[in-house]
């Protein structure tokens, strides 16, 4: 589904991703961990097509297409979704209107007609329940005045509405209380099928108790320096990153 090959990217002349490789197949969940500033959000942004980042090397194949050739909205249309680490506020635009616009734009990209209001409302109700998002939040302006946890939950709600092929979650677990964490994780698990995939960026092993990953990667200094199974996350929790960094430095 997603094949990243030697990806290099910089921002303001500073190289952040330094030759990153990653392959994600349908039905898989990948966790990406790594110290602050190692490039996790950068990877997510580059995949989503943020213009500030300049790709200086490598290629990315998404479902047989050259992902880097597509605009951000085309990538969304192709089924890529990014749950932002810091969701953005849009004053005056109701959450419902926003997601309705998004759903219909993505449908248009795929050559489908707009959803009838009735169908849309049905979908809305269903997905709202999935992440236990209150009706009040649905009617408020996008993320405006939402608590940190509410914003994250709203991201998962939007993801559920758009039902992407590839969902990238950038630290969706940070700032969530225990209940919210469980709700968000349940949401992801409900959405999971054998045809879609998730890349979950996290600092905490705790989330991975709920969303069980097939692979755990450690991102350090713009590269994936270690890949393992879910046990790796436990090991990291216990020992930190130093041993991996040392291991990596020896091999370079």
């Amino acid at each position: 589904m997603l094949k990243i090959n030697g990806l290099k990217a910089e921002i303001n002349g500073k190289e952040i991703l330094k030759g990153l490789n990653l392959e994600v197949k349908p039905g898989e969940v990948h966790a990406i961990m790594g110290p602050n500033g190692s490039g996790k959000s950068t990877l997510a942004s580059v995949l989503a097509g943020r213009e500030e980042y300049e790709v200086t090397g490598g290629d990315v194949d998404f479902e047989g297409e050259d992902l880097l050739d597509l605009s951000p909205e085309q990538r969304a249309g192709e089924g890529l979704f990014l749950a932002f680490q810091y969701p953005v506020e849009i004053p005056g635009v109701s959450n419902i209107n926003f997601i309705k616009t998004a759903v219909n734009e993505v449908r248009e990209y795929r050559g489908l007609p707009n959803l009838e209001t009735k169908e849309f409302m049905k979908l809305l109700k269903e997905k709202q329940q999935l992440v236990e998002l209150s009706g009040k939040l649905a009617n408020r302006s996008v993320n405006e005045g939402f608590s940190g946890g509410e914003k994250k939950r709203n991201e998962i709600f939007q993801m559920a509405m758009l039902n992407p092929k590839l969902g990238i979650l950038d630290e969706t677990d940070s700032g969530l209380d225990i209940d919210a964490l469980r709700i968000v994780a349940n949401g992801v698990n409900e959405l999971k099928t054998k045809d879609n995939a998730f890349v979950v960026v996290t600092h905490y092993q705790r989330l991975l108790d709920y969303i069980v990953p097939d692979f755990v990667h450690v991102l350090y200094d713009g590269r994936i320096v270690k890949t393992g199974t879910k046990e790796l996350a436990l090991e990291l929790e216990e020992k930190g990153y130093d041993w991996i960094i040392d291991e990596f430095k020896e091999t370079v």
Binding site: A48, R50, E73, R75, A76, G77, F84, P87, E105
Partner: peptide, 10 residues
């Protein structure tokens, strides 16, 4: 960018 990422054209 947030809108674009959700599929909404500029």
């Amino acid at each position: 960018f947030y809108c674009n990422q959700r599929g909404i054209k500029t």
